[in-house]
Design a protein around this nucleic acid. Structure first.
Lengths: 102, 102
DNA sequence: CTCCTATTTCAACTTTTGTTGAAATATAAT
DNA sequence: ATTATATTTCAACAAAAGTTGAAATAGGAG
């Protein structure tokens, strides 16, 4: 992952509602969750949730697929791994104080 | 590391100049670097660099110590590890697609 | 086709973040 | 004391991000 993509991903996660959305989607695994469910889960309005979902999707951290009337969102674990790998390796030169944490 | 601290740390890194500062400080290791050197290295004005250094320090990712007229900044690798550990474990439940990256 | 549900888009607005250059502070050298 | 160096702080401004509620779009059911 290149620097600009990493910056977007970091910015996407640096927000309470979005971090909660991501955590929720992680727990939902491959099944994912519909926008409406996410909205309820994180206690945010539909439009606010939609905005944050777009931000996460633009950053490549989640994917959207339509299923009938709902739109299902899922975590892109590879993108998360890409971002974290950048931080650990490119940024922190795989310093042991960093790598031991994972 | 708790959620709010993680959000601050993510926000601190989600900016080009600050990410560059952190990368530079990682390469400098325990010796660290003076604000002026960092300013030159990243090509930012003194006040802009000072602002970004404060942001990183407030987020706990770097530390400052005075050495004569200069102020030396160093990466706090444990804080970086704390932030990354949160992403990997609390956030991604240590999913293999994430942990294999580090 | 009309109605209902799910979600997004939009415009107006508020808040937060980043930039600039000048002034202030702190330390050291002469 | 005076001067020079290193860095921060400040106020003014510019730009980006987040919130709100209403309207628009898309798909399915009657």
């Amino acid at each position: 992952m290149e620097e600009q993509a990493v910056i977007r991903a970091l910015g996407a996660l640096a927000q309470e509602t979005r971090l909660r959305i991501l955590r929720y989607l992680v727990t939902m695994g491959p099944a994912g969750a519909a926008a409406g469910d996410i909205s309820q889960e994180v206690g945010a309005s539909a439009s606010r949730t939609s905005f944050h979902l777009s931000t996460l999707a633009d950053a490549g951290l989640i994917n959207a697929t339509r299923a009938s009337r709902s739109i299902i969102y899922r975590v892109d674990f590879d993108a998360m791994g890409g971002m974290i790998g950048y931080l650990v390796r490119d940024c922190c030169k795989s310093d042991p104080r960093v790598t031991t944490c994972c």
